[in-house]
């Protein structure tokens, strides 16, 4: 056998081994979700008998449906609000000239990098005064005032759109708003899709804000909070925890396969070039 072939095999075996390692946690989680409660405390990895009914049981034992609906509401509203506020801001930063633009951009990057814990106490006080603690609104409403990461991402995307297209529209008498809607938005569709996806996933996966704002009101919990507290509600039933965990992952996986391209593009865009 020649050397290049050996290298090829070696290379692929590494990649394949790596793939297995990446998949193993998911597979194991799935297998556990199919076990009996007793088997989860044994070293056996393969279910002795299959119990898909665990997936139904988990809906009875915890208000998982409620959690899912809350999470969907959080993720959908957050995404819509983010787009309404951040797309114009990104356009303003990418395509318009005005005093304070660079400073604003620096501040937005600072805000993007700011750990959420830094502003937690003042924001909690703010929402307590507004009477909205105990609900998910303190996590949703801020998106009406823009999301720093989305603005940054969209701005990076819009900068790459040549000014000539915009000038052409303006020659035809279009104002800035019209130019944004008619010219830039259609061209920035992949960027907008990526920003929307990121926001959706951020909200879907979020643990911190639901923990902070809705702890005391179980009616408003999200799935992440529900799962993290599952064990805490007196019993640890690994097969049910695993089933619930699988359920939270499914929408993420499905959406990802449909919108993989937008994602990859979005991630690449936020990394820096040169």
């Amino acid at each position: 056998m020649n050397r290049p072939f050996l290298i090829f095999v070696a290379r692929h075996s590494v990649t394949i081994a790596l793939s297995l390692m990446f998949l193993a946690p998911l597979v194991f989680l799935f297998l556990t979700s199919m076990m009996t409660s007793n088997q989860t405390f044994t070293t056996e990895i393969w279910p002795q008998s299959w119990h898909p009914e665990n997936y139904a049981t988990v809906f009875e034992k915890a208000p998982l449906l409620r959690y899912l609906l809350n999470t969907v509401m959080y993720a959908v509203l957050a995404t819509i609000f983010m787009l309404l506020s951040s797309v114009p801001a990104a356009y303003g930063l990418a395509k318009l000239r005005w005093r304070g633009r660079n400073t604003t951009m620096v501040l937005i990057i600072c805000l993007m990098m700011l750990p959420p814990q830094v502003s937690t106490i003042p924001m909690y006080l703010f929402w307590a005064n507004a009477g909205l603690t105990g609900t998910l609104w303190p996590a949703i409403l801020p998106l009406l005032a823009g999301d720093a990461f989305a603005i940054f991402l969209l701005r990076q995307f819009m900068v790459t759109i040549p000014d000539e297209y915009l000038d052409a529209a303006k020659v035809d008498g279009a104002g800035e708003w019209k130019t944004m809607f008619k010219v830039v938005l259609p061209m920035a569709r992949p960027g907008i899709a990526a920003a929307a996806m990121f926001q959706f996933f951020y909200a879907w996966n979020d643990y911190y804000y639901p923990l902070l704002y809705t702890s005391e009101n179980q009616d408003n919990w999200t799935v992440s909070l529900g799962i993290a507290s599952f064990k805490y509600a007196h019993h640890v039933e690994w097969e049910l925890v695993s089933a619930a965990t699988m359920i939270t992952m499914i929408p993420v996986i499905v959406l990802f396969f449909f919108a993989q391209k937008a994602f990859v593009q979005g991630v690449t865009l936020t990394g820096v070039k040169g």
Binding site: S85, L96, T104
Partner: peptide
Amino acid sequence: TPYTFMIPALIGLGLFLFYPLLSSIWF
């Protein structure tokens, strides 16, 4: 005109950057 595009984001900066920072120092 440019500022009309920026209104939500500028409110956001005030509410989520300046207000928390200043009040944290105060607290």
